[in-house]
Each structure stands twice: as structure tokens, then as C-alpha cells.
């Protein structure tokens, strides 16, 4: 299949990109790696009138660490995250995205602004309490990942804003687990659970759990976190907490997974992710 016609521009600076987006109006779209957008355009499920390609805009790719914060450029491809194991759960999740070819082109920024609740990185960003830096005509602002995803494939970015960077606290010493369930390894998650745990002497000081594809937006699992915070981390406490993984969720059903089955998977995967994060399994 082939995309519908569109106009194209590849500005050399962020300012020009923002201005092109603005002039292009509602049907203008940013193009990064294109691995969320182009498949939709090829199936004619999306038909933007203008593509503003970021490939010539300098300084948007790369991973850097400083002052307790990871800074990840929006155009950093998944493969770079995958091969940066220091990123912990982000690296583990990135390694499960589609396939190597897709990971070589797809970018973290593109994935986040696409806002697909079945994509791996959005819920992981929520679990890591990351934030994104966005640049618009009137300047820069920061949006916490927890506030980024507003509805099904809908984010808090305005039409003329560009996500430039992801900032994430360094979680040194935290354990993590990423459990993704799919039928084939190249598939989207039927359900995935990301967990990061900060433990001291076997006690859970802090814990955050992200849920992928358990609703119209990526989610956290607050009931699990509350149940575990301050508790001794063992198989029993984790299992008990994980039982609440699906609390308050309304997962979309499809041919291969009913809502009930997805809730069940969330509980199982949550337990497994927490066990990994707590160092109880490998």
C-alpha cells in the first residue's frame, strides 16, 4: 500500500520545524523515524497534508547522563536504548519493540507522541516518572509522563509543539522487571507490565508499576504500589500485591484476548515483573 499525497518539508532547525507545523495547520504532522506514522499512512488510516521531517534538525538524538537524570533525545532510536543497558527497564522494554529493523528506525519521541497504549515505552515512562520537554511557538515546557497521555492516541502536546527530549531520573540501585506478553515476539503487547522497585534490606521503599494495553491510555497500577510500599519483599507479599494489578482497568478486548483474560494476564505479569525487580527471579 501507498500513502496518500502530502507535501513535505525537512527544515534545518527546530524553530523552522515549529513554524512549518504551525503553517501546516491541523493536518500537518511531524515525521521522525516514521515507524508509527508511515504504517498508518500506507493503510490510509492517516492522511496528513504536510509532513515536517525532523531528520535535518540537529541535536535531537542521543543519550546522556548527568545530575541524577537521563536525557534522551527525541530522535534516539529504540536500538540505542536497547543497547544502553544502564537505562534499566527502558532498555529491557525497548529490546522487545517489534523487531530489529523497526528498532533501528523507530524513535522514543515518535513512540511517545503517537500515544498508543499498546506501545511499550509510554507505560514504562510513567513507571519511571519521566518527563518530556516540548518546544512550541511560545517556548519550552515540561510535561510529566503521568500527564502526557490524555486519551486513546491523544497526548497533551499541542498541534504545533515538538517533543525534543525525555528526562528521566536515574534509578541506580532500583531493581526492575519488564514482562511483555504477546503471541509472537514481533507483536505488540497483549499486555505488558513494567516494574521498578527500590528496596532496602528486603523492604520495599518505593515501587512503581506501569501497565501497557490495559486501557485507552497507558496506566500505572496504584493499588499494587500501595500494597507493596513499606512491605517486606517476598514471594507472598508480591503475589498479594500483584492480585490488584487490574484494579480499575477497562482493557479493550480483541479476537485473541477478552478483557477478563487481559486482567488475568496483568496480575500474572505484574507478579513476575515484581519478582524480577525484587531479585527473586531472573
Amino acid at each position: 500500500m501507498i500513502p496518500a499525497e502530502f507535501d513535505y518539508t525537512a527544515p534545518a532547525s527546530l524553530e523552522e520545524a515549529i513554524s512549518a507545523l504551525r503553517q501546516g495547520g491541523e493536518d500537518a504532522k511531524l515525521l521522525a523515524g516514521g515507524h508509527s506514522l508511515l504504517p498508518l499512512m500506507k493503510l490510509r488510516l492517516a492522511a496528513p497534508s504536510l509532513l515536517v521531517d525532523l531528520r535535518r534538525v540537529p541535536g535531537l538524538a542521543g543519550v546522556a547522563r548527568g545530575n541524577g537524570t537521563w536525557r534522551i533525545g527525541a530522535l534516539t532510536p529504540h536500538a540505542v536504548l536497547e543497547h544502553t543497558p544502564e537505562l534499566g527497564v527502558v532498555s529491557a522494554a525497548a529490546a522487545t519493540i517489534a523487531d530489529p529493523q523497526v528498532r533501528n528506525r523507530g524513535t522514543i519521541g515518535g513512540s511517545l507522541v503517537h500515544g498508543d497504549p499498546a506501545s511499550d515505552l509510554p507505560a514504562v515512562m510513567m513507571a519511571c516518572e519521566a518527563s518530556v520537554t516540548v518546544q512550541g511557538p511560545s517556548g519550552q515546557r515540561t510535561i510529566p509522563a503521568l500527564e502526557l497521555f490524555q486519551g486513546y492516541m491523544e497526548t497533551a502536546l499541542a498541534a504545533d509543539e515538538v517533543l525534543t527530549e525525555v528526562r528521566m531520573p536515574v534509578l541506580d540501585g532500583w531493581g526492575f522487571g519488564y514482562e511483555k506478553f504477546n503471541r509472537r515476539s514481533e507483536d505488540w503487547a497483549m499486555v505488558a507490565v513494567s516494574a521498578v522497585v527500590n528496596a532496602r534490606d528486603g523492604t520495599c521503599e518505593d515501587v512503581r508499576v506501569g501497565l501497557t494495553n490495559m486501557g485507552s491510555v497507558p496506566l500505572r497500577a496504584p493499588a499494587v504500589e500501595e500494597a507493596l510500599r513499606g512491605k517486606q519483599l517476598d514471594a507472598e507479599s508480591i503475589a498479594a500485591a500483584a492480585e490488584q494489578a487490574a484494579e480499575g482497568t477497562d482493557p479493550p478486548a480483541d479476537l485473541n484476548a477478552s478483557a477478563e483474560y487481559k486482567r488475568h494476564l496483568a496480575r500474572v505479569l505484574c507478579r513476575r515483573a515484581l519478582e524480577k525487580a525484587a531479585g527473586l527471579s531472573s
Binding site: Y8, A10, L31, G34, H35, L38, P39, K42, D53, R55, A79, P100, Q101, V102, N104, R105
Partner: peptide, 18 residues
């Protein structure tokens, strides 16, 4: 291959290969 890395050329615009 794009600079030595495998990519799917059905999901890349020709202009992106500049």
C-alpha cells in the same frame, strides 16, 4: 541497510534516505 543497519525500506520514504 541504512548506514550498515537493517531497516524495512517499505516504511521509509525515499527522501528520508538523503
Amino acid at each position: 541497510h541504512f548506514n550498515g543497519q537493517p531497516v524495512k525500506s517499505c516504511t521509509v520514504l525515499a527522501v528520508q534516505a538523503d
